[in-house]
Write a protein that binds this DNA or RNA. Structure first.
Length: 279
DNA sequence: AGTAAGATATTCT
DNA sequence: GAATATCTTACTG
């Protein structure tokens, strides 16, 4: 299980046309019944599906390459582990909706809710390959050496010059556009306003579509199953033994696994220094 | 290559 | 006050 690849050599292979136009519509929107199962069942089935966000600036779509399942009360790593709060309320709602949360004071992450209303379960969308709107995605990401996103920079970025990041990007940069849950949100322009959006509604700005024509989907037990790997979730301290992270084997957009790193003892913060901390 | 530090919302102790 | 489902930049070898 812990197989992982870090090469980006094949990244350009799936890049959209030089004009950055959509390569073609994916399949129809996933039915709500698709999400009326446990996150553990939904997660691997989501791989290869297409998440798209329509805004006045344009459309950006990604094919999901990496996801993680989070169950509710039985999963110590889940936001729902300790019950309902203002933040995780959407997790307790009907399936197929987006649970967007803000973390580390800077980043957004997006989940898709599973199980019927009343139960809390969701799949975290960790990475994807851009299949439409790569130019817009790159502009949102700041072109390349994007300055660290300040609060509020992830969602309403001023796009004065979309051509600032012409395609094709170098393979490595293209692969990194949505490689990681916060990067994925930034590339798609997903922010707090989309919390609760119905991804199963074709009229919603945020939609989840089935693959255009994936052999073996949605039954991963066939040949397609060989392309899916699984391992422990990234960055979770508790329940690290649960292998609830799923990704497309060898895909360059999948972020390398990072075990949870316990925070270093903070040396001297402003507040502690002001309080008279020694050094 | 790897390691360190910073930004700081939300929740829990 | 401390931890967290993160990412970027700056530094060292």
């Amino acid at each position: 299980m812990g197989e992982r690849r870090r090469d980006g050599s094949a990244a350009g292979a799936g890049q959209p046309g030089a004009a950055g136009q959509p390569v073609g519509p994916a399949g129809g929107v996933l039915p709500r019944s698709f999400f009326a199962r446990t996150a553990l069942e939904v997660a691997p089935a989501l791989l290869g599906c297409v998440l798209e966000h329509q805004t006045p600036d344009g459309l950006v779509a990604v094919e999901l390459t990496e996801v993680e399942a989070y169950e509710g009360p039985a999963d110590p790593a889940s936001h729902a582990y300790r019950g309902r709060t203002a933040r995780n309320e959407v997790m307790f709602g009907p399936p197929g909706h987006a649970y967007v949360y803000f973390t580390y004071g800077m980043h957004f992450c997006v989940n898709l809710v599973c199980l019927p209303a009343g139960a809390a379960s969701a799949v975290l969308l960790r990475a994807g390959r851009i299949v439409a709107g790569a130019g817009l995605a790159a502009a949102r990401r700041g072109g390349r050496g994007a300055p660290a996103a300040g609060p509020g920079a992830s969602a309403g970025v001023a796009l004065t010059e979309p051509s600032a990041a012409p395609l094709p990007l170098p393979g490595r940069d293209f692969a990194r556009l949505a490689s990681g849950p916060a990067r994925l949100c930034q590339a798609l322009g997903i922010g707090r306003p989309l919390n609760g959006a119905d991804a199963c509604d074709p009229a919603s700005p945020l939609r989840i579509r089935r693959p255009a024509a994936e052999a073996g989907w949605p039954d991963p037990s066939g040949d397609a199953g060989a392309r899916i790997s699984r391992g422990p979730r990234v960055g979770v301290a508790s329940a690290a033994d649960r292998c609830w992270r799923f990704w497309l084997t060898g895909d360059p957009t999948v972020s390398p696994y990072r075990p949870h790193v316990p925070p270093r003892p903070r040396s001297v913060t402003r507040s502690s220094a002001a309080a008279g901390g020694r050094l």
